[in-house]
Each structure stands twice: as structure tokens, then as C-alpha cells.
Design a protein around this nucleic acid. Structure first.
Lengths: 113, 113
DNA sequence: CTTATATTTCTATAATATTTGAATCATGGA
DNA sequence: TCCATGATTCAAATATTATAGAAATATAAG
């Protein structure tokens, strides 16, 4: 994954509303959710939601498909996985961290200044 | 890890200079690097660097220690690991993704719209 | 064709972030 | 003390991002 893409993806997720949107879409799975449902579920006005969806789509973290008069958004797991791959490579100096066991990287860690 | 912390950490890394700084510090390991070394290595003016280091420190992604007249920065692997843990939980609907094998999440993934 | 519904685009405003030179502060040595 | 070095803070300009109502667009149904 290219640095630019990494920064774009991180920026897309580095915002409370968008992180919430993405989490919701991950929960929803491949079927996804309509813009309206997301808007309602998170209490984000439609125009604001549209703005955020554009950010997420630009980062390739979500895809959209038209279904009758609804626009359905779904999470792009592949991109998220690539992002996690990049971050893992760049944590622990390349050694893979098992994210479930929060102790893997801790070995290299200093006692904190 | 709390949502606010996650957003703060993501925002800290969602900037080209800061991502480069963090990667450099990960490479450097627990010994860390002085502000001057980072500044020189990445071609970032001291005052700009200071600004970025404050962001990273605020996100608890780096620590600093004074060493004679140098300020030495080092990566906080623990925080990075916690961040990865959170993101992993929120990708693939809770199922841990092996970040080295970029195919783990792909099973759930749709064919992209 | 008209109306209702879903979503996006437009527009303006407000809030945050970034960049850096200059000034300031801190530490160590002559 | 005085000077040199390393780093941070200040200040001011610039750029980017976020918010949300109103208008426009798209689809479907009567």
C-alpha cells in the first residue's frame, strides 16, 4: 500500500462520525446499509453524511451501489486489511503483532519516559 | 481503547510528515532519536517538527526524555498495538485478521461495486 | 405529468490544522 | 558569566476540513 493511500485512509477514519460510520458498515457486512439508514442510525444530517461518505469512498474504504432509489454503502474489507497490514509492518519494526494478544509488541517497548 | 483515543491516534498518523516520523522512530527502536536527528533526516524545520511531535505525544504514540541538551523521542509500541487491536476488532466484524496474510478478511468481502 | 422519497450538490460559515521565521528557553562548556 | 547549541513557543499567514440548510437530481409510484 502506498504512503499516500495510507495517509488518506487514516485521515478518513480519523474523524468520529466517519469512524462510527465505518464500524456500522463493518457490522452490517457485505449487504451494507442505505445512506438513509446510516444517517438515521447515527443522527447525522443527510448532507453531512454525504460529505463523509465521499471521504470514505475516496479512501476506498467503502463502496456504493444504487438499489432502486436507495444508495447502499458497504465496507471494503480489503482496503482495511491492507491498511492494517501496513501499520503492522511499521509497528514492532516489521515483526507481525498478534493484535488479539496485546503483549506481542510490548517486549520491545521501553518503560515509558 | 476509547474511541476518542483511537480518533486522536489515527489523526496523529494521518499526516505524511508524522507518519514518516513515527516510522523512523519505530525503526530506531527504544533508544529513539533526538529532535535534531529527526529534523535532519526528514528535512522538517525544527519548529514544524516540534509541532508534529506534540501531536504524536498528545496521541501517546511517542514519549520523550531529556538527555543532556538533547530531547530524545521514541515510539510507544504499546499504544500502536492497542490501536491495531481496536482496528482489527472493528474490521472483519470482530474476527481477528492475520495482517501478514492479506486474505483473511477477503472471505467476507463483496466483489466491490 | 405530478408527487413523494432518497440522496447528493451547492453555498456559506465555522472550526482546525499546517507551516515557519523569529524570539525564547534550557543545557553544557569556555 | 558568556557563548554556543538544541529545542520549544509565539505569531501570523495559509490551507484544509466540517457542518448543515436549501436547492437540485434521481427514482419510483399514482
Amino acid at each position: 500500500m502506498e504512503i499516500k493511500s495510507v495517509v488518506t485512509a487514516l485521515a478518513a477514519l480519523a474523524q468520529e462520525s466517519r469512524l462510527a460510520i465505518f464500524r456500522l458498515l463493518v457490522q452490517a457486512g457485505p449487504e451494507g446499509l442505505s445512506a438513509g439508514k446510516i444517517s438515521e442510525a447515527l443522527g447525522i444530517p443527510p448532507s453531512s453524511l454525504s460529505f463523509h461518505m465521499k471521504e470514505l469512498a475516496h479512501a476506498d474504504l467503502v463502496s456504493s451501489r444504487q438499489e432502486s432509489r436507495y444508495v447502499i454503502y458497504s465496507a471494503n474489507f480489503r482496503t482495511m486489511n491492507e491498511l492494517l497490514g501496513f501499520l503492522t509492518e511499521n509497528c514492532c519494526g516489521g515483526k507481525p503483532c498478534k493484535p488479539t494478544a496485546t503483549s506481542d509488541c510490548a517486549g520491545i517497548e521501553e518503560t515509558q519516559a
